[in-house]
Each structure stands twice: as C-alpha cells, then as structure tokens.
Amino acid sequence: MTDEQLLQACKTGNTGAFKELVMRYQGQVAATVISMLGPGPEADDVGQETFIRFYKSIAKFRGDSSLGTYLTRIAMNLSLNELKRRKKKLSRFFSKTPEEIDIVDRDSDKKWYTDEARIIRKSLQRLEPDFRSVIVLRLMEGYSTQETADILGIPVGTVLSRLSRGQKKLRENLAPLLRESHE
C-alpha cells in the first residue's frame, strides 16, 4: 500500500494502517529524536508523542510536504520542547546548563554504539539546542538548507549562520576524532 492509501485508511480510523505508517517512519522519527535527546525512555516517549499528535491531526495533513518531513517537523518541535523542559528542571537544582553537564555513558549506549558514535553523540549533546537542531537536520539527516529552514520555521540566513557556528563548536569537541581520521 502507498502512503496515500494508508493515510486515507487512517482517516477512517483504521489503526492497522496507522501501525503500518508508524513502522514505516519510526526510523526517521528516531533519527531526529535520539540525535536531539540521546537514547533512552525520554526519546521513546517523545517518539510516541510524535505519532500520537500526527494521528490526532491527520485531517490537517494536506501533503504540502512529504509525510517524512511533516513527521520530522513534529518530532523536532517536541524534542526542542523536551529540551526546554529539561533545562527548566535542571536549572532548579544546578547552576550548569544541560549542555555543560557531562553525559554519563549508559550501559545500554555501550551496547548500541561504537566508540566513534559515542564521541559524536556526546559532542552533539554539548551543543545548544538551536545549533544541535540544524546540525542534525542538515548534516546527519541530509535535509537541504531550505528544508531545514522550513522544518524549524526560521529564515535560511539563520540556518546558515547557526550551521557555521554549530560546526565550529562541533569541530572543537571532535578535535581528537578528526585528528585520528585525518592521519
């Protein structure tokens, strides 16, 4: 079945069709959410919420953008909200921002990620959310600068300047890894 057919079936309340769409796009949503929040139950929760929001507003989906892009936009907005909530929560107890707090490797991460991937994930988590979001969409998910701007609802010029500053910070964080790859 095509996406269009599944969408039509979803609109009539067919949960089987909805499940098929979830399975088709969960990888794309996971890429956004896990890159933004790191792996764990919070990311899973935001991923679920992305699809629930989509299901509840399915009638509003007109197909102006692809379904994947539409879901990525919801996932990114929810991830940014979650990061704001996290920051608010942390600021009550610590003077540091979430980006300044060193992320502790979880055992589950060690199972799923290589050393290189863990260094990259940690470096990403150290970026402020505004920079992280453009890096994730443009560099990791391969969206164009225009698509990145549309997903985030910001001008292309802002995407370019955030990309530039984000990459400079990321390059500093990844310096040991880059030296290794270069040699």
């Binding site: 979830v22 969960q26 896990i34 899973d44």
Partner: peptide
C-alpha cells in the same frame, strides 16, 4: 539510531 523493539 532506532527505538527499542515493539515501538509501534
């Protein structure tokens, strides 16, 4: 990356 099995 992907979610844990049974996500759907």
């Amino acid at each position: 990356p992907d979610f844990m099995p049974g996500f759907a």
